[in-house]
Design a protein around this nucleic acid. Structure first.
Lengths: 202, 202
DNA sequence: ATTGAATGTTCTCTTTTTGTTCTCTATTAT
DNA sequence: ATAATAGAGAACAAAAAGAGAACATTCAAT
């Protein structure tokens, strides 16, 4: 088990390696985790080495190597460090404040559930066949929301909502090849609103 | 059977562990369940330990470990229920068994990190401006993988990889308006491969 | 090859934080 | 009344965090 300082150290090293392409010095780590003593840092990385999380080339400068294989199956929590912003043709840009993504906040709410999407009707909204959408269960929604609508109590569909001035409801697919459909409000029952989307490659 | 304070304590520990990835200190628990004495908390966790709901590493800080097998019926697992499949114009199709979303690609492994995407270069792959991508840190990738590439050790970019027969590397944006770029292999350093993507509407 | 600055290694020491064990009191249900 | 449950808080034990000195090694500039 890692102590919190050790965890912090590992995280810093990981981030540093990804951003710069080489590993940090002990002094850089010390500064990065907010302490002054590189002796202390050395103690921490020795622990990380003994747990096989990193390798240290003895006495070599910047001689820390992440043992990526060792991390497989070490699942800890649905928290993923958010390292920064990436754009075409620019270095990774650090983000203020939000340091990590908490999937627990993202999805683990009692009023949320997940649906797997099949079909291409929302493809232009970036929701692809096979994606999972997180739905917040509620019976009303705003114009522009992507909703799960139950039509005539029978058919469920994922569409963007538009309430027309005449009281009718327009359900808009995000796909040029498909057309929106207009329903009387009473035929449409809103089941929930899309609050998140996730996709797994592999 | 657990008393209500003990239950509250267990719930707090579970939530804390799931959210943070490490266990709380006695003082944090005390604050979390609204009391002042860590001595009392210690009594509670001792009970939980004797009921085999948690394990305590003696004298270790943050040394509480959840005994997950014991929780079967307590709905604390870091997984959200996958309710079904939704398609345009068809009823929600129930999925057999109580399936759950495989969060493997979204669960924190030390070799995973997240980047927020800026720009539209991958829009046709369903990765929009503002989305978050989960990257698995590795130094090699296959043709067709979406990778984080460091060009000349300087610029980071998110593109689809194609290794050309002549040893050159083609980085392909998924956007009709942009063109792929060809680089010598030695200029490109692969930082990781996209294994997941998520988006929050809110 | 030599040298000096930068970096890694090994210590000892102190402080801070956290866990453990008590005793005492209050409240509640049977 | 009694027992179970809650809670406060003091006193102590142990782990973790940290400072920093002293020394060893590397590496790049000369």
């Amino acid at each position: 088990m890692l102590t919190s300082s050790e965890k912090k150290t590992l995280k810093f090293i990981q981030k540093y390696c990804i951003e710069k392409g080489y590993s940090p010095t002990l002094t850089e780590i010390a500064k990065g985790i907010g302490i002054k003593s590189k002796g202390v840092v050395h103690r921490y990385i020795k622990t990380l080495e003994s747990l096989n999380l990193i390798s240290i080339s003895s006495h070599r400068k910047r001689g820390i190597v992440l043992n990526l294989e060792a991390y497989e199956n070490q699942s800890v929590a649905p928290i993923i460090p958010l390292l920064g912003r990436i754009a075409a043709g620019q270095p990774i840009e650090a983000i203020e404040g939000r340091e990590e993504i908490n999937l627990a906040d993202f999805i683990m709410n009692p009023d949320r559930f997940a649906l797997q999407v099949s079909g291409d009707s929302m493809i232009e909204a970036g929701i692809l066949d096979g994606d999972t959408v997180i739905i917040k269960h509620q019976n009303t929604a705003e114009n522009g929301d992507i909703i799960v609508a139950l039509i005539d109590g029978l058919e469920a569909t994922l569409k963007r909502l538009k309430k027309l001035p005449d009281g009718m409801i327009l359900l808009i697919p995000e796909n040029k090849l498909m057309e929106g459909l207009i329903y009387e409000a009473k035929r449409i029952q809103i089941q929930g609103v899309v609050v998140g989307q996730l996709r797994s490659y592999q």
